[in-house]
Amino acid sequence: MTVSLRLNNDVESSALLDLARAAESAGFDQLWVSNDLMIRSAPVLLGALATATSRIELGIGIANPYTVHPAEIAMMAATMQELSGGRFRLGLAAGAAEFLGWVGISQPTPLTTTREAFRAIKALLDGGRPVDVPGTGSGWAEEAYLRVPPVPTPISIGAMSPKMVAFAAQEADGVLALLFPPEHFTVVREQVETAAAEVGRDLADFDLPACVWLSVDDDQEVADRALAHKLAYYGSAFSPYLLTRAGLSRGDFAGIDASLRAGDPEGAADQVTPAMLRLGISGDPDAVVSRCLSLIESGVEHLSFGPPLGADPVAAVELIGETVLPRLTGVTV
Rank of each mutant, 00 (worst) to 15 (best):
residue 1 M to W: 07
residue 1 M to K: 02
residue 2 T to G: 02
residue 9 N to F: 00
residue 9 N to Q: 09
residue 10 D to S: 05
residue 10 D to F: 14
residue 10 D to M: 08
residue 25 S to H: 14
residue 26 A to M: 03
residue 28 F to Q: 01
residue 29 D to W: 01
residue 31 L to M: 11
residue 38 M to L: 15
residue 44 V to T: 15
residue 49 L to K: 03
residue 57 E to S: 14
residue 61 G to E: 12
residue 63 A to F: 11
residue 68 V to T: 15
residue 71 A to S: 13
residue 78 A to P: 02
residue 97 A to N: 06
residue 100 L to R: 00
residue 104 G to N: 05
residue 108 P to Y: 11
residue 108 P to C: 04
residue 109 T to G: 02
residue 113 T to C: 09
residue 115 R to K: 14
residue 116 E to F: 10
residue 116 E to M: 14
residue 119 R to L: 14
residue 126 D to V: 07
residue 127 G to R: 10
residue 134 P to D: 02
residue 139 G to A: 08
residue 141 A to I: 11
residue 148 V to I: 13
residue 148 V to D: 10
residue 154 P to M: 04
residue 161 S to R: 14
residue 162 P to N: 07
residue 166 A to Y: 07
residue 173 D to Y: 04
residue 184 H to G: 00
residue 185 F to R: 00
residue 185 F to I: 01
residue 190 E to G: 08
residue 195 A to K: 13
residue 202 D to S: 01
residue 202 D to C: 10
residue 203 L to T: 11
residue 204 A to N: 02
residue 208 L to H: 02
residue 215 S to A: 15
residue 223 A to D: 10
residue 228 A to L: 09
residue 232 A to S: 13
residue 235 G to E: 05
residue 236 S to E: 12
residue 238 F to P: 01
residue 239 S to W: 09
residue 240 P to F: 09
residue 242 L to P: 05
residue 243 L to H: 06
residue 247 G to T: 00
residue 271 Q to M: 15
residue 274 P to T: 09
residue 276 M to E: 13
residue 277 L to G: 06
residue 281 I to S: 05
residue 286 D to N: 12
residue 289 V to C: 08
residue 294 S to I: 02
residue 296 I to Q: 15
residue 298 S to F: 03
residue 302 H to C: 06
residue 303 L to N: 10
residue 306 G to N: 13
residue 312 D to F: 01
residue 313 P to A: 08
residue 315 A to R: 13
residue 316 A to F: 07
residue 317 V to L: 05
residue 329 T to D: 02
